[in-house]
Design a protein around this nucleic acid. Structure first.
Lengths: 353, 353
DNA sequence: TTGTACGCGTTATCAT
DNA sequence: ATGATAACGCGTACAA
């Protein structure tokens, strides 16, 4: 597996000084040319000739030392889940169009990694930051904000910071999802809730309680289980739910992973959706359309979230002086009705063994 | 939605000079302290005190100007598909552990974006590059290599470059997948092939032909359709396949998206998997385990790919002088047998209407 | 071990 | 519009 490299000795990249020398003009003139200012046409040609000949590429760091503008957007999330990777893809795409790129950091819910990530962003002078709100991040984010770095929080909140925010109507969407189950006759509706330390985890669960309260359906605490967003924990939780004396007839899963965990156990128990159990998922994926009769799901407006984030960032970046108050945008979610929910008539099918 | 900012005027971050002044020592001493060299213990305390008091954070760019080491890894892929986002997540995680971060660029198969992305990497002096091989990238990547930037290609090849590579045994895995279908009695096996401009697209299709040839099954050109990796094109292609006079009894889909497209039409036509059609997917996702009787799938060793990439990069980064010849690692894929494939006995069920 | 001074590649500020 | 030159923040010789 050997290849002849044949390459010339690796050479230090040419600098603006080299360009100026070859073009026979002053450094400042080259700099002005590079930054799109007017240059005498004769000089322009000389400079372009020199750049092409040398293969010159500007050193963005050296420029950043003066301008404090790196064109790099920090992006920090716990993991690249379906949802976050969708956001990242859209964000990356849109940033590309405005000459920026996204520096991606996954902290895996490890507090030390959160700190290290933000330190990395700070030392590398990202000129803006997009992140999923994380309590441990508060201090360091505050530091960035004070140095004038625009920050946008999305998905989870991180209260007490003067930054922009983009959320979805978690509570309203959850309310509608659970409300749908109640409205088609279910009274025994369980919820696989996300981690309650998270804003979204709490909001979605609030939506569940709201829907019950609005219809005066009593809360059964056995039906409320926190599964920490994870597939395996949801799987275990489902087993406990189905072992109840009165197992639920409907289920609301607060994210994609937990839906998968639930479906896994449902398959293991050979239960039928929606005959034995109706199910609604928060978060949608293409395969939910195809899974048996389809999984009813709440869809988050991923692209719109990314677009909103971009708008907020560019707004701050282009008006660095205007200390406009921070804004919060909250977007609606759709709920797509598919075959995983059916009217409950009381004529139960089989339940857990 | 107004918040009192109450923050002090945004201030330029403190520099090493400030630290030196407050600590009452020379700049050089602070620099040496920062880089872990020995400093008189008294001075060390003063410096640490000053750093804490000022909230000093090193400017990595200024340092990079001297060292040419930014700690940023360029990462370029066409899109953040299931596969690529998995790679990115693992890579990001592993890079975190060695104090680096990943700058993510999606080019959307747009040649100009490929160029711009590589230019961005070059101007920002990423000190290594990981990318899905892309023909349009050849020249610019060559430029990076000549300046001594370690590059690792994965997924698709980009021939003629002296760089490291990590691939999977696309051909062998496809061969086994199709071979399995043939071995359980199918002779009418169709393939939804990826774009043939791509290395993986060609290799996986070669595996298909190989499996046929090894068993002396004649090729039916009608059964070979290129669907450009996309769900919608796969959906349309499936419609044509099922309209054939002799529709296939088994199907090999060369990636996840095309499998979804195929399943979509299968659902639309109310066909049964595997009764009417056996199906194997290249690429696996959790829901494939749960879809009806399960989808038989080829799984790529995502974490192992990321680990190999990391190893290659660190190896180059830590031995910048040793001009070791470039290496290619090719990893095996597993094939997970699930319920979407069944022995073909000739007793056909219904086919397309 | 410490302090000084220079250089890294670029932008910005002057005169011109 | 251009050219010369002073920063920018840090690393690193070199002299002390």
């Amino acid at each position: 597996m050997i290849e002849a490299t044949g390459s010339a000795e690796q050479t230090r990249p040419p600098t603006i000084v080299d360009v100026a020398r070859v073009a026979g003009v002053a450094i400042g003139t080259v700099s002005r040319y590079l930054n799109g200012q007017t240059v005498r046409s004769g000089n322009r040609d000389q400079i372009e000739e020199a750049i092409g000949q040398l293969g010159y590429q500007r050193n963005a760091f050296a420029a950043a030392m003066k301008t404090d503008l790196t064109g790099i957007v920090g992006f920090m999330v716990p993991s690249l889940s379906e949802f976050h990777s969708g956001i990242l893809e859209h964000l990356s795409r849109k940033m590309r169009a405005v000459g920026r790129a996204v520096l991606c950091y996954c902290h895996d819910d490890d507090p030390r990694s959160v700190q290290e990530g933000l330190d990395f962003f700070a030392t590398h002078r990202v000129d803006s930051l997009v992140m999923d709100g994380e309590p441990e991040a508060a201090d360091r984010v505050r530091g960035l904000v004070q140095h004038g770095t625009p920050v946008v929080l999305y998905d989870n909140d991180l209260p007490g910071l003067a930054v922009d925010r983009v959320f979805v109507e978690n509570r309203a969407a959850a309310n509608r999802a659970v409300g749908h189950l109640l409205d088609i006759g279910h009274s025994r509706v369980a919820v696989l809730a996300g981690n309650q330390k998270n804003f979204t985890g709490r909001e979605r669960l609030k939506g569940y309680f709201e829907a019950l309260a609005e219809r005066e359906v009593p809360v059964n605490r056995d039906y409320v289980v926190e599964s920490n967003w994870k597939e395996v924990e949801a799987h275990a939780a489902m087993r406990r739910l189905l072992a109840l004396e009165e197992p639920p007839t409907a289920l609301f899963c607060c994210n994609y992973n937990m839906t998968v965990g639930a479906l896994d156990l449902i398959k293991e128990y050979k239960l039928s959706v929606p005959h034995d159990l109706s199910i609604v998922s928060f978060d949608d994926v293409p395969l939910f359309r195809l899974y048996e009769a389809g999984i009813t799901a709440v869809t988050q407006p991923v692209e719109q979230i990314a677009e909103t984030i971009l708008g907020m960032l560019l707004n701050r970046l282009n008006n660095r002086t205007s200390h406009a108050p921070s804004a919060t945008v909250t977007l609606d979610c759709d709920i797509v009705l598919r075959g995983s929910t059916r009217r409950w008539t009381g004529s139960a099918g089989k339940t857990a063994q």
